[in-house]
């Protein structure tokens, strides 16, 4: 008993001294800045910065002078903190959010060619007979994007549509990669006008295929009306260049199918209607005044 205690105690002492010596002798200098930055980063390990996890990005900032504004989930606050640690000037990148470019969703507003019974992922659904829905470009409703989102930002609304919560979305782009139909694009959160259709079918076909009746039919009216030439037709589909878009909403007003959305469209229409009413009233009043004054002139 006593020998066991002595032997184990001696062994423990020898190894302890060895380890203490090794840790002094072979000490690796880690830049404290890296650890400070790891502390600041949101540790979502989403990969939006292009590095394997937050630690990888922190190392790249310190060692390779990587730009400071690459953390999408962190946003402006984190950029500020990192700038403080690195003692550099930095401005936050424009915050981007996911936009799902298909307005169809769920069984209510989609036409199906057949009932899908297979594996419940989008990737699997699109390889069976080119997907169950009539539109060969639309959403197939197996929710790969929802599963891919680490921030719980994509959800289903009451109509079965996939909607992006702009507050929760960090623009990491995981859903963009997950969607086998390439329906999701990242756009600046400030952008308001979007073309929500991805169908390259010819106009008549895409109109027939869309259960929501909001397909882009490639008519080109928006291309003609856009004052900034921000829209172009690519293979029967209007594509918006967000860099040029000034969000005037003219395209959304002109779109015959409602493929282009602008949340202010209705308010603008209302305003226009009111203005028209006023103008009409003014004209009527003027006419009445003229009529009224006419006898006087006689």
């Amino acid at each position: 008993m006593i020998y066991a205690i002595i032997i184990l105690g001696a062994l423990g002492l020898i190894y302890g001294l060895g380890l203490a010596f090794a840790s002094k002798k072979f000490h690796v200098e880690v830049d404290p800045k890296i650890e400070a930055i790891i502390e600041v980063l949101p540790s979502a390990n989403c990969g939006a910065c292009g590095y394997p996890g937050c630690a990888g990005y922190a190392e790249a900032i310190v060692m390779n002078d990587e730009e400071l504004n690459k953390c999408a989930p962190g946003g402006a606050a984190v950029v500020g903190e990192i700038a403080k640690i690195m003692d550099k000037e930095a401005t936050a990148a424009d915050r981007k959010v996911a936009v799902i470019k298909c307005q169809s969703g769920g069984a209510n507003n989609t036409f199906f060619r057949y009932e899908y019974q297979g594996v419940t992922t989008c990737k699997a659904a699109v390889i069976v007979n080119n997907g169950p829905n009539l539109c060969a470009y639309g959403c197939v409703f197996q929710n790969d994007c929802i599963a891919a989102c680490k921030f719980d930002a994509i959800s289903l609304d009451e109509n079965g549509m996939r909607i992006v919560d702009k507050e929760k979305c960090t623009g990491c782009g995981a859903c963009v990669k997950a969607c086998p139909r390439n329906l999701i694009e990242l756009a600046s959160e400030k952008k308001r006008v979007h073309i929500l259709c991805s169908s390259h079918d010819k106009g008549a076909d895409s109109r027939k295929a869309c259960g929501n009746k909001t397909a882009c039919i490639g008519c080109g009216i928006c291309v003609k009306k856009c004052p900034k030439d921000a829209i172009e037709l690519q293979n029967n589909l209007a594509v918006l260049n967000y860099d040029l878009c000034i969000m005037c909403g003219i395209c959304a007003d002109a779109c015959p199918t409602g493929a282009i959305i602008d949340p202010l469209k209705e308010a603008r229409a209302l305003r226009k209607a009111e203005a028209k009413k006023k103008a009409d009233a003014a004209i009527a009043a003027k006419a009445a005044a003229e009529k009224g004054s006419a006898p006087e002139g006689e």
Partner: peptide
């Protein structure tokens, strides 16, 4: 389990 469909995805 729909093994063949998963294998199809794997093959792709």
């Amino acid at each position: 389990i729909k093994l063949i469909q998963w294998i199809d995805i794997g093959k792709l």
